[in-house]
């Protein structure tokens, strides 16, 4: 009992919870900034810059505007961060899945858990009463709406495809651990021709979900002064920046697990060859799995976020909406129809 509680605590606080999210998320953000800079022929900040930024912000005083609702203003960033960290617990790392969490949330739940960080930033911004925040939250909500349709289509395609493949009685599955386990046995889903459009659609959704350029109308610095963050300063602002970094990790690792799951390192066998067994082998395998996941996340970030960032200019909000509900949704819909008719 106590051991279980302790284990849960370690999961939540260290791996794959808070500490892991903190380190990898900020590292990912740093790599993204560096990559964009290099693509634009700039030198760019050091890779650890997001860490420096975060700690510097934490050292600053927090100024609460007189018009703001203080409780909401201060609690909203923390709530969003906590929800994101918990969400990360439900995303397996190849073979490494926490059995106790496998039956807590499925894909559809994750879809809606993803809304909580967005809602918390909206509430935080709204609580200040700033007109910049008002415009920002309007755009944020429309961006969320825009991403919702393609995301739904992608998840339904994957659920149907795997459900049929594993011969589930209902013909569908929404369990993320089932999907990952299926890929361990039968290879990555990206190898299925019918799911390739869905994978592309998901890749295109990632920058929208995380609010990265060119889909960052919600916090356009040059026109609405970071929108919902306009009144934020000090540690709460740092927490929002951290949440943004972790959301990049969440979305990219979700993408990797949905489409590039599979044997992961495959080093389980390799490790056995060397002669490691038992706990040591499991630990080494897990470490390598995490490493592979991170490398894949970096690649996805490079392709899906950094590259798109470097070559495009910011879109207007109605363009974002139109783009997601037409181009991206059409791709995802194609997948759904293909999957549905067994292709």
């Amino acid at each position: 009992m106590i051991l279980d509680a302790l284990k849960t605590l370690i999961y939540v606080l260290i791996f794959p919870g808070f500490l892991f999210c903190f380190l990898t998320g900020l590292l990912l953000a740093g790599i993204d900034r560096k990559l964009v800079a290099r693509m634009q022929k700039r030198v760019g900040p050091p890779i650890l810059q997001p860490f420096y930024d975060f700690f510097k912000l934490c050292g600053k005083q927090t100024i609460v505007p007189a018009a703001a609702n203080k409780t909401v203003f201060l609690v909203a960033p923390l709530l969003g961060l906590a929800a994101l960290v918990v969400l990360q617990l439900f995303i397996p790392v190849f073979q490494f899945q926490i059995p106790a969490f496998a039956n807590v949330a499925d894909l559809i739940v994750i879809l809606y858990l993803l809304l909580i960080p967005a809602v918390s930033i909206i509430l935080g911004g709204a609580s200040t009463g700033s007109p910049y925040a008002g415009i920002g939250l309007s755009r944020e909500m429309v961006t969320v709406l825009a991403c919702e349709l393609p995301l739904v289509l992608v998840l339904l395609s994957v659920g149907r495809s795997v459900g049929v493949a594993i011969g589930a009685k209902e013909g569908i599955t929404f369990s993320l651990s089932t999907i990952v386990r299926y890929q361990l046995e039968s290879g990555s889903l990206i190898c299925k021709a019918s799911l390739i459009p869905a994978a592309i659609a998901f890749l295109l959704v990632i920058p929208g979900e995380t609010g990265n350029h060119p889909f960052d109308a919600a916090e356009a610095e040059t026109e609405i002064c970071e929108g919902m963050l306009a009144e934020y300063s000090g540690a709460p602002l740092g927490v929002y920046k951290l949440s943004h970094a972790i959301k990049m990790l969440t979305m990219t690792s979700l993408f990797v697990m949905l489409f590039f799951g599979g044997i992961g390192t495959g080093i389980g066998n390799l490790v056995a060859l060397i002669g490691l067994t038992g706990g040591a082998a499991a630990a080494v395998t897990m470490l390598l799995d995490v490493l592979v996941l991170f490398v894949l996340c970096v690649i996805v970030t490079a392709v899906g976020i950094s590259f798109v960032h470097a070559v495009t200019a910011r879109l207007k909000i109605e363009q974002i909406f139109k783009y997601y509900w037409t181009v991206v949704s059409a791709l995802a819909l194609l997948s759904l129809v293909l999957v549905w008719y067994g292709l």
Binding site: T8, L9, V12, L13, G17, F18, C58, G59, L78, L79, L81, A82, A83, V85, V86, L89, A100, F101, A102, N103, V104, A105, D106, L107, I108, V109, G163, A168, E170, I172, T173, F174, S175, A235, V239
Partner: peptide
Amino acid sequence: VGVWNPVNWLALLMIALLAICIVAIASK
């Protein structure tokens, strides 16, 4: 077919929120 266990999720959220709050308060 799906899985959703609200109580467990809420417990996890509370742990995470508590931990984050402690860190937040400790870091001024």
